[in-house]
């Protein structure tokens, strides 16, 4: 989904300073690409679903901190995060159940392919992608819950300060 240009422009008063926004505009694509690289190459190089998913969640947190919550919520809203989290958790049980049709639970049923190829190792890349998406959405949802939706008490404190 394309972001509205006026939201990520340096003139937008929300978020951090123009220096930070300019750097983040350049770094953003690299951060997300690195996260997906760690996830997709998880069965060949060090890393995997959890590490790559945390990098992607860091990318969304960076977007939230630099440009304000509208930009990050347009990329992944809290509802989308919860749907992705739930469906990935479901699929992580469903794929081993498919293996049960071929033999037993958690069977690596597809052909393994040539070692060191990108498409190899059967279901392991699929598990990596599922775990990566699940970790991304759930960690970003926790960040949203703690920093944006959890403002209830601190907002009341601010109001009490203003009244004084």
């Amino acid at each position: 989904m394309a972001t509205k240009p006026e939201l990520i422009s340096s003139e937008n008063p929300k978020g951090m300073t123009p220096v930070v926004k300019t750097v983040v505009r350049f770094a953003m694509g690299i951060v997300f690409m690195f996260g997906w690289y760690i996830i997709i190459y998880g069965h060949l190089t060090p890393g995997g679903g959890f590490a790559g998913g945390t990098i992607l969640a860091c990318g969304y947190v960076l977007l939230t901190l630099a440009f304000g919550k509208e930009v990050a919520l347009a990329k992944m809203s809290d509802r989308a995060a919860s749907i992705i989290d739930n469906s990935c958790a479901f699929l992580f049980v469903a794929v081993p159940l498919v293996g049960m049709a071929f033999g037993y639970f958690f069977l690596n049923f597809p052909p393994h392919g040539k070692p060191f190829d990108l498409v190899s190792a059967g279901v392991i890349p699929l598990y990596n992608i599922l775990i990566g998406l699940k970790v991304t959405s759930s960690l970003f949802a926790i960040f949203l819950a703690l920093s944006i939706f959890g403002r209830f008490v601190s907002k009341l404190v601010e109001e009490a300060e203003e009244e004084e």
């Binding site: 998880g42 069965h43 690596n108 070692p115 190899s120 190792a121 059967g122 392991i124 598990y127």
Partner: peptide, 11 residues
């Protein structure tokens, strides 16, 4: 078939 033995073990 996984080159990364850690991924092979945990998954």
């Amino acid at each position: 078939g996984a080159a990364n033995v850690v991924a092979a073990i945990i998954l």
